[in-house]
Amino acid sequence: MDLALVQTALELGLICSLTVLALFLSYSMLNVCDLSTDGCFTLGAAVGAVVAISGHPLLSLPAAMLAGVCSGFVTAILQTKMGVDSLLAGIIVNTGLYSINIAIMGGSSLLNLNKTDTVFTMAKDALENTPFAGQYKLLVAAVAVILVVVLLTLFLATRLGLSIRATGDNPDMVRSSSINPAFTTIVGLCVANAFTGLSGCLLAQSQKSVDINIGTGMVTIALASLLIGRTIMGRGSILFRAVGVVAGAFLFRLVYTIALRFDMPAFMLKLVSSVIVVLAISGPYLKKQWPLLRRRFLGAKARKGGGSEC
C-alpha cells in the first residue's frame, strides 16, 4: 500500500477528529447526542471559506469556531430553557442551518477556494524548501488537533469541566453541588460546537472547496470514530481517552481508504459508518442478550422435539 494514501487518511482523520473530539465532549461527557453536528460542520466550513475569500485566512479559524459556538448556544438554549427534547433540538437547528449556510455562501451551494489564500497555502509557502514541504497539510492538522486535545484535557480538569462531566454522569449530584445543569449543558455544547466548526473550516480549506453537503453524515462518521477509539483505548484518564478518540478517527479513515483501494465505491462511506455505529452500540447489548436468546431458542427446539414423541 502506498504511503501517500496513508498520509491522506491521516490528514483527513486528524481534521475530522476535531469533530470527534466535539462529540467526545457532548456525547461521552455531557450525554447529549448533538444532531446539529452536520449543519454546524458545514457552518464552520462556510464561514471559514467566506472569511478566507475576503482575505483573512488566519481569521477564518476563530470565525468558524465562533459560528460553531453560536450554533451550539441555540441548540443548548432550545433544550435547557425552552423545553425542546435534546434530539429534536439538534435536528431543528440542523435544518435551520441549511438555509443559513447557503445564505452565508451568498446564495450558492458551492464555493471554490482554488485561488484563495488559506491556512494550508500559508503553511505550504512557509514550508517551501524544507524537508516537510510535502506534509504541510498534515502539520497544520496535527497542530490544530494537538492544541485542541491539550486545551480540552486541561479544561475538563477545571471545576467547570468537572461539572460538565458530572452533568452527563449524574445531574442530581450537579444540582446538589449548587451548579445549574442547564448552565453546564450550554457551556459544554458551545465548546463542542466550536470544535465542530473548526473541523469543518479546516476540511473546506484543505480540499479547497465548500459544498453545502460537506457536513452530511458527519455525526455518524464522528460517532463511528468515537466508538472505535473507545473500543481500542478502553477507559482511562481523560488525556488517554482523547488520544484514543483521535486514533479512532484516523483508524476509521484508514480502513475506509483501504476499502476504496479494493474498489469500494466512494459513496459507500456513509453506509460503512452507519454499520460501524450500529455494531459498536448494539454489539455489547446483543452480547448480553445472547445467552438468553440461546436458551429460548434451544428450549423451544427441545419442547418441539419432546412434543413429537407424545
Binding site: T158, R159, A166, N170, M173
Partner: peptide, 27 residues
C-alpha cells in the same frame, strides 16, 4: 447511587462538592 457521579473519581466528586474556587480552578 444518587449522590455521586459514578464515572468520576472520588477526588473529582469531592472537588465538585467542596465548591471552592472559580470555574477554572483545578484540584
Amino acid at each position: 447511587m444518587r449522590g455521586s457521579a459514578p464515572g468520576m473519581t472520588i477526588e473529582e466528586n469531592l472537588a465538585l462538592a467542596a465548591g471552592s474556587g472559580g470555574w477554572f480552578s483545578r484540584i
